[in-house]
C-alpha cells in the first residue's frame, strides 16, 4: 500500500516530466510546422538555389536568400567584432579593478540596459548613429552613404548585446576562485598579468559560451536592426552598404504578402533558415565547449 505522501511525490514527478517533455516537443513542432509551411517553395526550387542565389524577385517567383543570409552574418559579425572587446574589458574593469562603490551603481545600470525594449535602441540608432555615419564617418571612406548601413545595424546590435555580454562575463570572472588570483599576485604578478594569464584562461570556455548566447540573441534581433540597416536585398560589399537581415525580411513582409502562397512559403523558409542556423550554431558550440572543457580539466 502506497502512502499518500509517496503518491503525491510520484505524481508531481510525473507531471513535471510531462511538462518538460512537452516544452521540448514544442520546439520540434515548430521546426516541423515551418518545414510544412515552406514546402511549396521547396518543391519548386532546389535548396542550393534558395540558399546561394542572390536574385530576390518574389513577383517573378525568384527567391534567392543569399543577400539575407549575408546581411544577418554581416550585422552579427560587426556587432561581435566591435563590441566583444568592449564587453570583455568592461567586465574585467568591473570585477578586477573597480572599487565596490562603482560596482554598486554600474551593475543595476547594466540590468536596466539589458531590459530596454529593442525599439528604443532602434530609435537611438536612427537619431544618432545614422547621421553620424552618413555625415562624419562614411565621407572618409566612400563617396556617398545614407547612413542606413550594415555598420549601423552592427553598432546598434552590438550596443544591445553589450549589457548581456558584460553581465555574463562578470558572472564568469567572479566565479574564478580568489585563491587563484592570490596565488598569481603573491608571485609578483600585476593585476593585468593575473587577468591575462589566469582569469581569462580559467574562463575561456565560459567566454565562448557567453558569446554563443549573445550571438544567438543577435541573430534573431529584428526591430532595432530593421530600423537602421537599409533593407536592400543585396549582398553587402562593404560595411557602408545597406543590408537586409533575415528577421527584418520576415517582419517587413509577413502579413502583407499572404495573398501570394509562394511568397508566404518563402518567408516561412526564411524563418526555418533562422531556426536551423541558431540550432546548428548552438549545437556546434556545445560540442566545441565540451571538447575544450575535456582538454583543460
Amino acid at each position: 500500500m502506497i502512502s499518500l505522501r509517496a503518491l503525491k511525490d510520484r505524481t508531481a514527478g510525473g507531471v513535471m516530466f510531462f511538462l518538460t517533455i512537452a516544452s521540448l516537443l514544442l520546439v520540434v513542432a515548430m521546426g516541423v510546422g515551418l518545414y510544412f509551411k515552406s514546402s511549396p517553395v521547396l518543391a519548386d526550387h532546389s535548396l542550393g538555389e534558395l540558399l546561394f542565389s542572390s536574385s530576390w524577385h518574389p513577383m517573378k517567383g525568384e527567391f534567392g536568400f543569399l543577400p539575407f543570409l549575408m546581411g544577418t552574418l554581416w550585422v552579427t559579425g560587426i556587432a561581435v567584432i566591435l563590441f566583444l572587446p568592449v564587453a570583455l574589458l568592461a567586465a574585467i574593469y568591473l570585477t578586477e579593478y573597480a572599487r565596490p562603490a562603482v560596482r554598486k551603481y554600474v551593475f543595476p545600470a547594466l540590468d536596466i540596459l539589458a531590459g530596454l525594449p529593442s525599439v528604443i535602441y532602434g530609435v537611438w540608432g536612427t537619431l544618432l548613429i545614422i547621421p553620424w555615419i552618413s555625415e562624419w564617418l562614411a565621407p572618409h571612406f566612400v563617396e556617398f552613404s545614407t547612413g542606413y548601413t550594415a555598420l549601423a545595424g552592427g553598432v546598434v546590435l552590438g550596443v544591445m548585446i553589450l549589457p548581456l555580454m558584460v553581465s555574463l562575463f562578470i558572472e564568469l570572472f567572479t566565479s574564478v576562485p580568489s585563491e587563484l588570483r592570490d596565488a598569481s599576485t603573491s608571485l609578483g604578478a600585476t593585476r593585468w598579468q593575473t587577468v591575462k594569464r589566469v582569469v581569462l584562461r580559467k574562463s575561456v570556455t565560459g567566454i565562448l559560451a557567453a558569446v554563443v548566447l549573445a550571438v544567438s540573441r543577435a541573430f534573431g534581433e529584428t526591430i532595432a536592426v530593421l530600423m537602421v540597416c537599409g533593407n536592400l536585398p543585396e549582398v553587402p560589399r562593404s560595411i557602408f552598404n545597406a543590408c537586409y537581415p533575415l528577421p527584418a525580411l520576415i517582419a517587413n513582409n509577413y502579413g502583407e504578402m499572404l495573398s501570394f502562397p509562394q511568397y508566404e512559403a518563402a518567408l516561412m523558409f526564411a524563418a526555418m533558415i533562422l531556426f536551423v542556423v541558431i540550432l546548428l550554431f548552438n549545437l556546434i558550440s556545445r560540442i566545441i565547449l565540451y571538447r575544450m572543457e575535456k582538454r583543460f580539466a
Binding site: 596565488a183 599576485t185 609578483g188 604578478a189
Partner: peptide, 20 residues
Amino acid sequence: ITRLRRKMGLVSQKPCPLPM
C-alpha cells in the same frame, strides 16, 4: 608591491594550481 611579493613565496592552505 610586485617586488615585495616576489620576496615572499606563499603556500596556501588548499593547494591552488593555476589553470595551466
